[in-house]
Amino acid sequence: MTSRTFLAIVAVRCKMLLQYRAAALAGFGTQLFWGFIKVMVFVAFYASAVVEPPMTFAQVLVYVWLGQALLALLPWNVDKEIAEQIRSGGVAYELLRPVDLYGFWFARTLAFRLAPTLLRMVPMLVFTYFMMPWVGLEDWALPAPASAASGWLFLLSALATLLLSTAVTMILHISLMWTISGEGFNRMMPGVVPLFAGLIVPLPLFPDWLQGFLYWQPFRGLADVPFRIYSGHIPADAALLEVAMQLGWSALLIGFGMALLTRARHNLVVQGG
């Protein structure tokens, strides 16, 4: 598939998905509320800390608010249209198209992750960064990036997150071709992904004996890595290596997804009619 075709698919899907503004606004309200609960819980925990925690409170604030802003980026659900195509057998038409199926779905999935994130991210960042200090909530507001370099590296890392998240979502999509086990897999992921990405509890706050394991798993690149680059918890000079690891995991998971799709196509039986 040429990059022009790829970008055209992404652009068209994004344009369509950007229409859902009312839902995004309701989502913004929900996520803001969620963020406030989390912040209040952390305020209480930090007030009772006896030994110094491995993250400052400001770094936790970054983690909470970026987590709410970029929630839609996490690969916890599937594109219902693709799922329906697989279920109904419409996937047969997809195979007839003169484009590679993995590339075609990857483009759609990229848009499916990107557009809702853009819609929800903008109001969340504006509110938590600019408006909260303004209404007297500066203690709870989203802090600025640790440095200009950290800010730019965060953007780079966030783009790598988009790639990684799309790769994981693709595996969810393709797994649906194995009807029952695919459904099971799709039911487990929404629990496992946020935990290992750091959205339930920031990963550095987990017990020290778990840190080694948490470091060597791909889902860290979905939230923990970009958030800690922003807050400087991962220093700017170590950030490029972390981004490289995100990209490495993405490449690995894309390769796995492609292999999975090839297998699925061999097993695919489309009912005639």
Binding site: F45, S48, A49, P207
Partner: peptide, 20 residues
């Protein structure tokens, strides 16, 4: 599992901070 990870999160925070 999806609801159980929340319980794990609460446990992890208490493990780190001791008390709320």
């Amino acid at each position: 599992i999806t609801s159980g990870v929340e319980a794990l999160g609460v446990w992890a925070l208490f493990d780190r901070f001791g008390m709320l």
